[in-house]
Design a protein around this nucleic acid. Structure first.
Lengths: 224, 224
DNA sequence: GAAAAACGAACAAACGTTCGGTTTTATACA
DNA sequence: TGTATAAAACCGAACGTTTGTTCGTTTTTC
C-alpha cells in the first residue's frame, strides 16, 4: 500500500471526522441540525489548528478565531462549551484516530516483522493526513490537567508498546535479533514523530511520505 | 569522556550562565550590581523554565512568576524589559550554547566518524545539563516573530549540517557507506531530541544519558 | 409565524506594565 | 564603631488592555 491508496481509503472510511465530533458531543453542541453544524464545526476546528500551530493554543484568542472563521463570537459558543473544552476535544480526537487506525487488529499483518513495518507505515500515513492534528496534540498535551495528562502519556506509550510487541514476537520466533525490544521501539517513535513535527523541513527538501518511510525502513532493517 | 566528566567541565567552563545573561543585557537590566542581579536572574530564569515547561510560556503569568521567585512584580521589571523579551533571551541563550559547545572546532576530533559521534554525544550531554532550556526552546520557538523564527530554523539545521558534513567526509574517505548524508543526518537529529523532549520516559525506565548514547551509537553504527 | 441559529455589545476577570513610595545597602565622616 | 545620607533595589496598588463568556436582540430557516 502507498500513501495515495491510504488517503483515498481514509477519506472514504471516515467521510466526515466532524460528523463524529458532532454526534459524540451532541449534548453540549447547541446547534441541532447536522447540515448546519458539521460545516461550522469543520471551520472552527481547522481554523483553531491553523492559528494554534502558529502561535500556540493559549496564544489564540476567540476574536481571531471568530474573524478567521467568519462565525461570530456568540455563534462559536453554540458549538463549543468553552475554550478549554475545545482543546481537549481536539486531543481526544487524535488519540481516538490513532487507536482506531493503528490499533485495528483486522488490518494488521500476522507476521510480526510485517506488522512492525505496517504499524510504522500506517502511523506515518495517518500523521500525514492529520498533520496539523498530530502537531497540535504533541505541542499542547502538556497543558492538559492531570486526568487528560495521563491519557496523553498512555497514548505516547501505546504505539511504542505495539512496536515493542512486534519486536518481541519476532525475536522469539528467531526472525530477528533484538536484545532490548523496549529500547528499540523507543528509538523508532521519534523517527515517526519527526515527520509531523517538522513538515517544513521535508517539504523544503521535496521528500514525500513514501520516500521518508523507505528511508526509515532501511534504517531500521539494518539494525535488526 | 562520560557524562560526569562533561558535567564537571561544563560547570567550571561556564561558572555562571546567568553572569553572561547579566553582562550581555546590562543595557536593559536596571539593577547594576552583579552580586545582586545574578542570583535574581537565576531565580527568574529557572522559575520561568519550570512554570513554562508545565503550562507553556503564554500560560505563565507574571504574578505566578513573582510568587514562585519571591520577587515582586515591580522588581521583576528591573530585570527584564518585557515578557516577550524574556522569551527571546532564553531562546538566544540556548542557541548560543549550542554554537559554543557543539561548534567548538578545537575539541572536535579530526577523524570524521569520531567527530560524528563526538557531536552526537556532546549534543546529548549538553541537552541533559540544560534539559529545561532545550525543551523550552523547542516548544516556544514557533511563537517567535519572523526574524527570530529564521534563527530558530537555522539552529535546527546547524547541528544537522555538522552531522551531514561528517558523514560526507567519512563517505569520501571510504570509511563508511552513506548514499544520502543529508537524509541520514535528518534521522539522527530526532533521536537526540527525544532525550530532552521526553525525559519522564527515560527517568521512569531508569535509563542514563550514557546508556542512551550507547544505544543510539549502536543503532547508527549498524546502518553505516 | 415559530423555532433555530447568528449576532455583537457588554461584563467581569486576568493580564502585562507602570510608578510613586518604602526599604535596604553602600559610603562618608565623626 | 556608630550614625547620617544618598543611591540602589524593592514593593504592590493602580492603570489600561485583552480575554473568555454571556445574553437580549436580530436574522434566517422551514
Amino acid at each position: 500500500m502507498n500513501f495515495q491508496d491510504f488517503k483515498i481509503q481514509f477519506e472514504t472510511d471516515t467521510p466526515q471526522i466532524y460528523r463524529t465530533v458532532f454526534e459524540e458531543n451532541s449534548d453540549l453542541i447547541k446547534v441541532k441540525k447536522a447540515k448546519v453544524a458539521v460545516p461550522n464545526l469543520e471551520k472552527i476546528f481547522t481554523t483553531t489548528l491553523k492559528i494554534s500551530n502558529r502561535s500556540g493554543f493559549k496564544g489564540m484568542n476567540l476574536r481571531d478565531l471568530s474573524a478567521e472563521t467568519g462565525i461570530s463570537l456568540g455563534a462559536i459558543y453554540s458549538y463549543i462549551e468553552s475554550k478549554d473544552r475545545l482543546l481537549s476535544m481536539i486531543i481526544q480526537q487524535v488519540m481516538a484516530s490513532i487507536r482506531v487506525v493503528i490499533g485495528d487488529r483486522d488490518k494488521q499483518p500476522d507476521n510480526p516483522v510485517d506488522r512492525l513495518f505496517w504499524i510504522m507505515c500506517t502511523h506515518l500515513y495517518l500523521s500525514e493526513v492529520m498533520q496539523e492534528w498530530f502537531f497540535f496534540a504533541f505541542m499542547e498535551a502538556r497543558s492538559f490537567k492531570t486526568e487528560g495528562r495521563n491519557d496523553a502519556i498512555e497514548s505516547e506509550l501505546f504505539t511504542e508498546k505495539l512496536l515493542a510487541d512486534c519486536l518481541k514476537e519476532a525475536a522469539c520466533a528467531g526472525q530477528i535479533e533484538c536484545v532490548d525490544p523496549e529500547a528499540f521501539a523507543a528509538m523508532i517513535k521519534p523517527l515517526l514523530q519527526d515527520w509531523y513535527l517538522k513538515p517544513w523541513k521535508y517539504k523544503r527538501r521535496g521528500v514525500t511520505v513514501d520516500e521518508y518511510f523507505t528511508r526509515v525502513e532501511k534504517f531500521i532493517r539494518a539494525s535488526l
